[in-house]
Simulated assay, not measured.
Amino acid sequence: MRTVSIQHAKANLSRLVDQAAQGEAFVITKAGRPLVKVVPIDRPTAAQMRRLGFMAGQFSVPEGFDRMGGEEIDALFDMNK
């Protein structure tokens, strides 16, 4: 694994972060001693990100669901009363 001094990391942080995000982990050293390891954050897989349809088949929607309570709603908005 690549090591870089803290001075080099300060001067080239943007480039080093871009490289780490692409999978090139590295260690930052100070006075020759390792301090921190910079690694990319694990990205969620496509299966983990999929949310639409995650409960498919778990329940059913009754017929006329989109019209339920329609009369009460119409009465609430009726301006002629």
Score class of each variant (00 low, 15 high):
1 M>V: 15
3 T>Y: 12
5 S>I: 03
6 I>D: 06
6 I>C: 02
7 Q>S: 12
7 Q>T: 15
8 H>G: 03
8 H>R: 13
10 K>D: 10
11 A>S: 10
11 A>H: 09
12 N>V: 01
12 N>S: 05
15 R>P: 01
16 L>A: 05
16 L>C: 02
17 V>N: 06
17 V>P: 00
18 D>Q: 13
18 D>L: 15
20 A>K: 03
21 A>M: 13
23 G>I: 01
23 G>K: 08
24 E>F: 02
24 E>Y: 09
26 F>Q: 03
26 F>I: 04
26 F>G: 01
28 I>C: 04
32 G>Y: 02
34 P>R: 13
40 P>C: 06
43 R>Y: 09
44 P>F: 06
49 M>Q: 11
49 M>K: 13
50 R>I: 07
50 R>P: 05
51 R>A: 13
51 R>F: 14
51 R>D: 07
52 L>Q: 10
52 L>P: 02
53 G>H: 07
53 G>K: 07
54 F>G: 09
54 F>S: 13
57 G>F: 11
57 G>Y: 08
59 F>A: 11
59 F>I: 06
60 S>T: 15
60 S>P: 01
63 E>F: 08
63 E>N: 12
63 E>M: 11
65 F>D: 02
67 R>M: 02
67 R>P: 00
67 R>I: 00
68 M>C: 00
69 G>S: 03
70 G>W: 04
70 G>N: 07
70 G>T: 06
71 E>D: 14
72 E>S: 14
77 F>N: 05
78 D>S: 05
78 D>C: 04
79 M>Y: 11
81 K>T: 08
81 K>L: 11
